[in-house]
Design a protein around this nucleic acid. Structure first.
Length: 575
DNA sequence: GCCGTTTTCGGCCCGACTGTTTTCAGTCG
């Protein structure tokens, strides 16, 4: 059984953790972390590359040794180095490393001096006052660790974008009223539109920092102030979300925003470029010796290293720097590029608004068309449509289209893909429609081979247009079902059908790397809201964020096309 | 562990905050 990329990446990260605990060479540790990140973001499974007799792509930072280890993990699923390290380091050490304020040094002390073997034991040792007797520990750290252990059980470790949006907006409003504050911007993974966010980073400008950090820590939602200095502060909100604020002078705004937007890997690569050109780049600006040569805007930071501006969503050090240097950055899709939405529900099944209400909401967003795609009969709990009810809905849509003016409702369905790969409605019913969105809603636990075959068979059906939420995951709640995405993408290209990027903030699949694979294969992506009520059409913004992370341009997006260009593409799938 | 138009050895991004250190180590981002 060859290993998946995520498993390879986890193993490499674990090597890094273990080396850290052994206080190994920090640059060696970084090399392993970097390799883990590269493998995780790779479009293709390493194991299938090797099975096809191909080699790993050449990536800066992965030399002969790491490439060998990655291959070994992919094929043999074992790594002698990892086994060896595990023998030296107790398993609990890895777990303790995840706690705040515990790094390799303190973890080592805990294990060696207090013989801690579980988090519960640490908890007891903290309560007994044994921990504070160790060098480097004191009452302060004791308190923080106790808080962290007690908090751990009931706070989600990562937050979905939609949740963060709701928490960040009022905080930003609060900060804008701080004494002497200028700009206030959310940076970090939130600005990069990562699908989940561990904490939020805010960059603010002000001539004097302390009044702003004080104002910040007095925000009513703050339950704990983890740190507060003159220019930075960290708090935890009632929701459990951690917020870091950084205050810089106005002339450093761009450099600070760049620095705190990350990603870390992107920043390291940019700083390194600067260094090669004799520059020092930090959060205060770009410096040649002591002379500051830029940093008021992000564009100045990039200009200093001879690059054009790189959009935040691309900043993962996954080739964007090389692409920028070669002037081959994609022109990324924007929300305003979307002309319609190809996955929308109504009250006919499990939606909460009528088709007319959904049309009004779509119009208000500036869209020109939506497809009504109800569930099919197999999804009984959603009161899915049978052929007769579908026929009646089609007639209703035709009547509606006659008088809603410059807007079109497309006749669609979200048909279930049954376990054997058949679709839940007969071809005769599907033939009446403008498009058929097909989805897996059952039997998520099939083997990779079976699940892939099931979907491939469905794709062969004559009216199959779009594969909805292609991995079925619910972020933080349900793992994706096991499916060979490269094979699905290949099949979609051959078949001339499309993949959905479901914009619901709980789903957001395709993932960014899968979007990029689809783009490279020439398979168009439908960014669709899957709205079940009128307010959810605006979820398209999350889909666009994910699409941008996947390097998609307007021409890669099915519903960035006006209706007259869309229709022939949809018809092409009616084989 | 990686890498090279200064180098195949000796570098490797850079700074803030905390605590218990009384001048800085550990941790974090």
């Amino acid at each position: 059984m060859p290993a998946h990329n995520t498993e390879i990446a986890d193993a490499l990260d674990q090597v890094a953790d273990l080396l850290e605990l052994e206080q190994g060479n920090p640059f060696r540790i970084r090399a392993y972390r970097n390799a883990a990140r590269v493998v995780r973001g790779l479009g293709t499974e390493v194991a299938s590359l090797l099975a096809r007799g191909e080699d790993l792509p050449k990536v800066r930072g992965i030399g002969a040794d790491l490439a060998g280890k990655i291959k070994e993990l992919a094929t043999r699923e074992r790594l002698p180095l990892l086994d060896e390290l595990r023998r030296h380091v107790p398993a609990i050490a890895l777990e303790l490393l995840r706690l705040p304020n515990l790094g390799p040094k303190r973890v080592k002390l805990l294990c060696e001096k207090l013989h801690i073997h579980s988090v519960e034991q640490l908890h007891r040792a903290l309560l007994d006052g044994r921990v504070r007797t160790l060098p480097g520990f004191g009452a302060g750290i004791e308190k923080k660790l106790l808080e962290a252990i007690e908090e751990r059980s009931h706070v989600p470790s990562r937050f979905k974008l939609a949740a963060v949006e709701g928490l960040a907006a009022p905080l930003i409003d609060h900060l804008r009223k701080a004494p002497g504050v200028g700009q206030v911007t959310v940076a970090g993974s939130y600005r990069r539109c990562q699908e989940t966010v561990g904490d939020i980073d805010i960059v603010a400008t002000a001539a004097k920092g302390p009044p702003v950090t004080t104002w910040f820590t007095q925000y009513p939602e703050v339950v704990r102030v983890a740190a507060a200095g003159d220019t930075r502060a960290t708090v935890v909100l009632r929701s459990g979300l951690q917020v870091d604020l950084r205050i810089v002078p106005e002339e450093s705004y761009g450099a600070a925003l760049h620095y705190f937007t990350g990603s870390k890997a992107h920043n390291i690569a940019i700083r390194r470029l600067g260094q090669e050109n004799g520059l020092k780049i930090n959060e205060y600006g770009v410096f040649r010796g002591r002379r500051r040569i830029g940093g008021e805007t992000e564009a100045e930071v990039y200009k200093a290293v001879d690059l054009p501006f790189i959009p935040p969503e691309l900043r993962e050090n996954r080739g964007e720097i090389e692409a920028a240097a070669a002037h081959r950055l994609p022109k990324l899709v924007e929300l305003a590029d979307l002309r319609g939405d190809l996955h929308v529900h109504s009250t006919a099944t499990d939606g909460h608004n009528t088709i007319e209400e959904m049309v009004e909401a779509a119009r208000a967003l500036g869209l020109g068309y939506i497809a009504i795609t109800e569930h099919s009969r197999h999804l009984a709990m959603a009161h899915g449509l049978d052929p007769a009810r579908l026929r009646r809905q089609v007639a209703e849509i035709d009547r509606l289209n006659a008088h809603i003016g410059p807007f079109t409702v497309l006749r669609g369905i979200e048909v279930d893909i049954l376990e054997d790969g058949k679709l839940d409605l007969p071809d005769s019913a599907l033939a009446e429609l403008d498009l058929v969105v097909a989805a897996v809603h059952s039997r998520f636990n099939l083997s990779r081979e079976q699940q892939t075959e099931r979907i491939l068979r469905a794709m062969e059906r004559p009216h199959f247009t779009i594969l909805a939420h292609p991995t079925g995951r619910l972020i933080g709640e349900r793992e994706p079902y096991d499916v060979d995405m490269p094979r699905l993408i290949d099949a979609a290209r051959e078949r001339g059908c499309f993949l959905e990027l479901n914009a619901h903030p709980d789903r957001l699949d395709l993932t960014d790397t899968h979007c990029r694979m689809a783009k490279e294969a020439g398979v168009l992506v439908s960014i669709a809201s899957d709205a079940h009520r009128d307010t959810e059409l605006s979820y398209l913004r999350f889909g666009v964020g994910q699409a941008r992370r996947g390097w998609l341009s307007p021409e890669d997006v099915l519903n960035a096309r006006p209706l007259e260009e869309l229709r022939p593409l949809l018809r092409r799938t009616i084989a």
